[in-house]
Computed example of a mutant assay.
Amino acid sequence: MERVAAIIPARGGSKGIPGKNIKPFLGVPLVAHAIKAALGAKTISDVIVSSDDDAILSVAREYGAAALKRPADISGDEASSESAVLHAISENDACQAADTVVFLQCTSPLTTSEEIDQVVTARAEMDADTAFSVVEVHAFLWQIEADGTGRGINHDASKPRQRRQDRPREFRETGAIYALRKDGFVPEGVRFFGRSIPVVLPDAIEIDLDTPRDWLALEAYARAAGHQS
């Protein structure tokens, strides 16, 4: 059976929401939601939290994940998530033994175990290098030119506005789940390489926790929808 390691990057610094990754969301530290979803996924063999922050690593252990201390030079605002995943692969035995690594974002606390399984399974069944979660979107996107005028990106504004059902289907990366073939990811160093497969998650929530307003909106939605901690 394929071995799959889930890596959850969770650095200590957060300018938008201070202490975000251990701030209680629905009464539980934010990082714990990702840990619980990963531990509940049938496809996941090991769960590792990578952080520069000892408080986050303590919460990780409390909720059943392995804790990996991340160096400061790959923990700042400019550090990529890929650098944290590559570090985990180089330092953690479970990651080194894995065939697939799954990168999960803390900022999507409503991600479910079933959604993780769906993405991991799609990568394996379609023999893809990368599988990632997406949601269908229907937005009309605009680019603002240097002179201040708008230019339609995914639509022709000079023509009558199309109905949603008449437009090509378009999808947005949720940023929540990426399943990567480890042996291909390590030399490439980026999450998209080779053959990449979008996996549509119809019930995924499109709000990431980047600002206090995001937090209020998502927590209010979660409570109204009956989500439990």
Rank of each mutant, 00 (worst) to 15 (best):
E2D: 15
R3A: 05
A6G: 11
I7M: 06
I7H: 04
I8K: 06
P9L: 03
P9S: 05
A10K: 00
R11Y: 03
I17R: 04
G19C: 14
I22T: 10
K23I: 07
K23C: 11
L26C: 10
G27L: 15
G27Y: 15
V28M: 12
V28A: 04
L30Q: 13
L30I: 14
V31N: 00
V31A: 07
A32P: 05
H33M: 09
A34L: 04
K36D: 06
L39F: 09
L39P: 03
K42F: 04
S45W: 13
D46A: 14
V49R: 01
S51Y: 06
S51T: 09
L57C: 15
V59F: 07
R61A: 09
R61S: 09
E62V: 07
Y63H: 14
G64V: 12
A66I: 06
A66Y: 09
A66G: 10
L68C: 08
K69M: 09
R70P: 00
D73M: 08
A84W: 00
A84D: 13
L86E: 01
A88Y: 00
S90L: 10
E91H: 09
A94S: 10
A97P: 02
A97T: 08
A98I: 15
A98C: 15
F103L: 15
F103N: 14
L104R: 02
Q105I: 06
T107V: 11
P109R: 09
P109D: 12
L110N: 11
T112W: 01
T112G: 05
T112Y: 01
T112E: 07
T112F: 01
V119C: 01
V119G: 00
V120H: 01
T121L: 05
R123Y: 01
A124S: 08
D127I: 07
A131K: 00
F132S: 00
F132M: 02
E136I: 04
Q143F: 04
Q143G: 08
Q143Y: 04
I144F: 10
E145W: 03
A146L: 11
A146T: 10
R151C: 02
G152V: 03
I153M: 15
H155S: 07
D156R: 07
Q162P: 10
Q162N: 08
Q165W: 11
D166G: 07
D166A: 12
R169W: 03
E170L: 12
F171R: 05
E173T: 13
A176T: 03
A179N: 06
A179W: 01
F185T: 01
F185V: 00
V186R: 11
V186K: 08
R191N: 13
R191K: 13
F193C: 00
S196P: 00
P198K: 04
P198F: 02
V199N: 03
V199I: 14
D203F: 13
A204E: 02
A204P: 02
E206Y: 12
D208A: 12
D208P: 05
D208H: 06
D210M: 03
D210H: 11
P212I: 11
R213D: 13
L216H: 12
A217W: 09
R223C: 06
R223L: 14
G226F: 02
S229G: 12
